[in-house]
Computed example of a mutant assay.
Amino acid sequence: MNNNLLFDFSVDKENKAIHIKREFDASLGMVWQAWTTAELLDQWCAPNPYRTETKTMDFHEGGFWHYAIVSPEGGKHWSRYDYKKIEPQKSIIELRAFSDENGSVSPDFACTECTLIFSEADGKTLVTITEKYRSPEMFGKMATDSHKKGFSSHLRNLDKFLLTLKNK
């Protein structure tokens, strides 16, 4: 596994935004598939030692991903990502929110708008993520080293998962 891949996590307090850039040693098609397929997301998209469990995924504009982050003890923390715009193998704009088990979005937290941009150069894929927080409280909770470490952990899981896909 290549440990020299770009990972940049910056906080923009003025605009309540977090910018993340992460490079993967895999083709754009492979990274896109891992990022947009429920069965594949469930294999990498959670910080260790948690795991992801998809309940519903309808990956198209107007669709959504409803899933739980599952703790080692079995506790579930539900979220829902509503897909607003998708340009295949280029970008995704989604609204992220906490939800309940049925997919109802929690009124206690404003949705976060997230834009993901995918690009490829020299056989590596760069994913650029911008998280724009509508809630100052949620931004304060996420603009932390803890969020950076958790995000970094689940992206390292993607590195490992991509390596297994490449070796098949």
Rank of each mutant, 00 (worst) to 15 (best):
residue 1 M to E: 08
residue 2 N to E: 05
residue 6 L to C: 09
residue 7 F to H: 05
residue 12 D to G: 07
residue 16 K to T: 13
residue 16 K to H: 13
residue 16 K to P: 02
residue 17 A to T: 02
residue 17 A to L: 03
residue 18 I to D: 02
residue 20 I to N: 02
residue 20 I to V: 06
residue 20 I to P: 01
residue 24 F to L: 04
residue 25 D to N: 03
residue 26 A to F: 02
residue 26 A to Q: 01
residue 29 G to R: 06
residue 29 G to A: 15
residue 29 G to C: 08
residue 29 G to V: 01
residue 33 Q to S: 15
residue 35 W to C: 12
residue 42 D to C: 11
residue 42 D to Y: 03
residue 48 N to E: 15
residue 49 P to I: 12
residue 49 P to Y: 10
residue 56 T to W: 11
residue 56 T to L: 14
residue 57 M to P: 06
residue 58 D to V: 13
residue 61 E to H: 01
residue 63 G to D: 12
residue 75 G to L: 10
residue 77 H to Y: 14
residue 77 H to S: 11
residue 78 W to S: 09
residue 78 W to E: 04
residue 79 S to M: 15
residue 80 R to D: 04
residue 82 D to F: 09
residue 86 I to F: 07
residue 86 I to E: 15
residue 87 E to C: 12
residue 88 P to Y: 04
residue 91 S to R: 06
residue 91 S to K: 05
residue 93 I to W: 05
residue 95 L to W: 10
residue 96 R to L: 14
residue 96 R to H: 15
residue 98 F to I: 07
residue 100 D to I: 01
residue 101 E to A: 09
residue 102 N to V: 08
residue 108 D to W: 03
residue 109 F to S: 14
residue 115 T to C: 11
residue 115 T to E: 14
residue 118 F to G: 10
residue 119 S to C: 09
residue 121 A to C: 14
residue 122 D to I: 02
residue 126 L to W: 10
residue 129 I to F: 09
residue 129 I to T: 15
residue 130 T to H: 04
residue 134 R to M: 12
residue 139 F to H: 01
residue 140 G to Q: 12
residue 141 K to R: 08
residue 141 K to I: 05
residue 142 M to A: 13
residue 144 T to E: 03
residue 144 T to P: 00
residue 145 D to L: 08
residue 150 G to W: 00
residue 154 H to F: 10
residue 154 H to M: 07
residue 156 R to D: 11
residue 163 L to P: 01
residue 164 T to H: 05
residue 164 T to A: 12
residue 165 L to D: 14
residue 165 L to E: 14
residue 165 L to G: 10
residue 166 K to P: 09
residue 166 K to S: 09
residue 168 K to S: 09
